[in-house]
Computed example of a mutant assay.
Amino acid sequence: MATSARSPYSNWFYLPAAVIYGILFAVPTFASFFFSLTRWSIFDWKFIGFDNFVTFFREPALVKGLTNTLIYALVTSGLKVVLGLLLALLLTSQIAGRGYLRSVVFFPVLVSTIGVGLTFTVLMNPDQGLINDALGVLGIDGPGWLTDPQYALLSVALVDVWKGVGLATVIYIAGIVSIPAEYFEAARMDGAGAWDNFRRIVLPLARPATVTVIILSLIGGLRSFDLIWAMTRGGPGFTSDVIASVIYKQYQAGFYGLSTAGNVVLFLVVTAIVLPLSRFLNRKEVEL
């Protein structure tokens, strides 16, 4: 009877990783779940059960933040997937200055998020911003990008896409260049055109890159805070608030238990969306 191979390493080698995981993830997670059931301050706490969660879902501003979070995540992740794939196709073609253009596309990823937010806040100023000035030259009356409730959340989402699409593009480039050249040569001999190459070779074989971009972009969109806070602080009113900004405002106001409950809601929302989606996409990938 064959015996299973034993690891040459002692189980004690797992202890440092387990300690780090426990201190940095497990303990804070369980503490957050516990304190979300309390009304607490720095010096004391009182157990109140699910009252914080009841309050959370009864507050219109908090529910609005949850809705905005889902909209923001869908818009930003969807655009990053589409634009990232299109840019990757362009930057893997025989275009002049390909290496330079790849650097240009990736550069926004390296810039500070707060810096990007402050820069675009100036550019999107409805009265003196460069964007509306440029539209005015064309005879177009530009809107209040960050002051009009209809445009505020979408404007921040577009800035998020501008900053993050470079990472999606790099992931797609890695996926496309890893496709064996023999597939394209065989397709060319069969008379396939550019559209056939894209539909029958690039799209299916770059699926792992697509899955990675979707998951990373969706997680980033659901957890987004710094760019929104730098550009609108959730305004005007609560129209561009997301869960993270609502949580921060509750902390500022001293409602620590309610804000902790918001953190738990955010954790559960991210987990409930990302884990099933990841399993679904990876299962489909294996079936292909």
Rank of each mutant, 00 (worst) to 15 (best):
V213I: 00
V109W: 12
P208M: 07
L89D: 04
L123Y: 09
I42S: 11
S7D: 11
S10Y: 01
A31D: 15
I214C: 02
T92V: 08
V116N: 11
N282V: 15
D148V: 05
G191V: 05
V177W: 03
F57N: 03
G97E: 13
T119H: 13
G129I: 05
T271I: 09
T239Y: 13
S240G: 02
N11G: 15
V156W: 04
F43H: 11
V81Q: 08
M231P: 07
I71Y: 15
F106R: 07
L135F: 07
A186H: 06
T55V: 09
V104C: 13
A73W: 03
F184N: 01
Y151G: 05
K284S: 14
N125S: 12
F280M: 13
N11L: 15
L216P: 02
T210V: 02
P16E: 00
R200D: 15
G175Q: 06
P180W: 06
G78I: 02
I114E: 14
G144E: 07
G99P: 13
I228T: 00
G221N: 01
A73I: 03
N125F: 07
G22Q: 06
G164T: 03
G234Q: 03
G97T: 13
F56C: 00
F120E: 07
F184K: 05
F50A: 14
R223A: 06
I20Y: 11
G129W: 06
R98G: 10
W12R: 13
M124P: 13
F225K: 00
P126Y: 09
A2E: 15
D226G: 00
L86D: 03
N11T: 15
I176S: 05
P180I: 06
Y183F: 12
M1C: 13
V109L: 10
L123Q: 09
S41R: 02
Y183T: 04
L85P: 01
T239E: 13
V27W: 15
S4F: 15
P149T: 09
Q250P: 03
L258V: 09
L90E: 05
N132R: 01
F238A: 12
V116M: 14
S32I: 08
L90C: 02
L85W: 05
I243N: 01
I114A: 13
E59V: 08
A26R: 09
I179D: 02
Q128R: 12
A272V: 01
R223Q: 11
V81I: 10
V211A: 08
A61L: 10
P108C: 07
W195H: 14
L91F: 04
I42F: 13
N52P: 00
E287S: 10
G115W: 10
T271F: 14
I95H: 08
V105G: 02
A134S: 12
L268Y: 03
R98E: 09
I131G: 05
S245E: 04
Y183W: 12
R223F: 02
A194N: 13
Y183D: 04
I140C: 04
L37Q: 10
L203Q: 14
G22N: 07
R200I: 12
R98P: 06
V170Q: 06
L37R: 09
N125T: 09
